[in-house]
Amino acid sequence: MKAIPVVLKILQAIKNVDARSHLLYLSLMCCILLLQNFTISSILAPALNQRDNSQAVFDDFSIPLLLPIFLSPLFETLIFQAAAIWVLQLFEIKEMKIILFSGLIFGLVHFMGSHYLIVVFSAIFAGVLFSGMYLYRLKRNGFFWAVADVTFVHAINNTVIFIDTFQ
């Protein structure tokens, strides 16, 4: 369970970032996810004999690319960050627990079978990052920017996964 303190340190670092430059902030979030994707696909997946394709939906080109790359991030942000965090806040749960629980829910809905367990861990990490980012931006800039930023970073992440899947 050493991963949780690492996640907490990353979230604290994100919270402490002086985001004067919106582009710098979004770039930092994308870099964290890219580093995580690289670690999962290059190190953990082969070590655990798991597939590193974290989006099985990309295996079928009959689905328009607009759906997994752009629309899914928007709807997942609205459901797993905005709605989930709003509901959890109603129960007056501490912010860090809300972020972790929201990330856990996000990761578990990406479960696609035991051969893709590495995907769940990757999605939990991404979900925690998205939830922390959402709460930070919500407090700082409001609902629109929170949803827009998380959706943008999520779409970049899905695009990189898509490119990695078909290289």
Rank of each mutant, 00 (worst) to 15 (best):
I4W: 04
I4D: 04
P5C: 09
V6P: 06
V7A: 10
V7I: 10
I10R: 07
L11T: 11
Q12C: 05
A13V: 08
I14G: 09
A19S: 15
R20M: 14
R20Q: 13
S21W: 14
L23R: 15
L24G: 14
Y25C: 13
L28P: 02
M29V: 15
L33S: 15
Q36M: 15
N37L: 08
F38W: 10
T39G: 15
I40V: 15
S41I: 15
S41K: 15
S42K: 11
S42R: 15
I43S: 11
A45V: 14
A45T: 15
P46R: 05
A47T: 14
A47P: 07
L48D: 06
L48Y: 12
L48N: 05
R51N: 12
Q55H: 03
Q55S: 07
Q55N: 12
A56R: 03
V57C: 04
F58A: 07
D59T: 06
F61K: 01
S62Y: 07
S62F: 04
S62C: 07
P64F: 03
P64V: 03
L66R: 05
L66I: 10
L66S: 06
I69M: 01
F70E: 11
L71Y: 01
S72F: 02
S72L: 10
S72W: 01
P73Q: 06
F75K: 08
T77Y: 02
L78N: 05
Q81M: 10
A84T: 02
V87G: 00
L88W: 06
L90A: 09
F91D: 00
F91P: 00
E92W: 02
I93A: 14
I93W: 03
K94L: 14
E95P: 01
E95Y: 04
M96S: 12
K97D: 13
L100I: 12
L100S: 08
F101L: 14
S102P: 01
S102G: 12
I105E: 04
I105C: 12
F111E: 11
M112C: 01
S114A: 07
S114M: 09
H115L: 06
I118C: 08
V119A: 10
V120N: 03
I124R: 01
I124M: 05
G127D: 08
V128N: 01
F130E: 05
S131W: 00
G132M: 04
Y134R: 08
L135C: 03
Y136A: 12
Y136L: 14
Y136M: 11
R137A: 09
N141D: 07
N141S: 11
G142S: 10
F143H: 08
F143A: 11
F143W: 13
W145R: 06
W145A: 08
A146N: 14
A148W: 11
A148R: 12
A148F: 14
A155E: 09
A155M: 13
V160W: 00
V160L: 04
V160D: 01
I161C: 11
F166T: 00
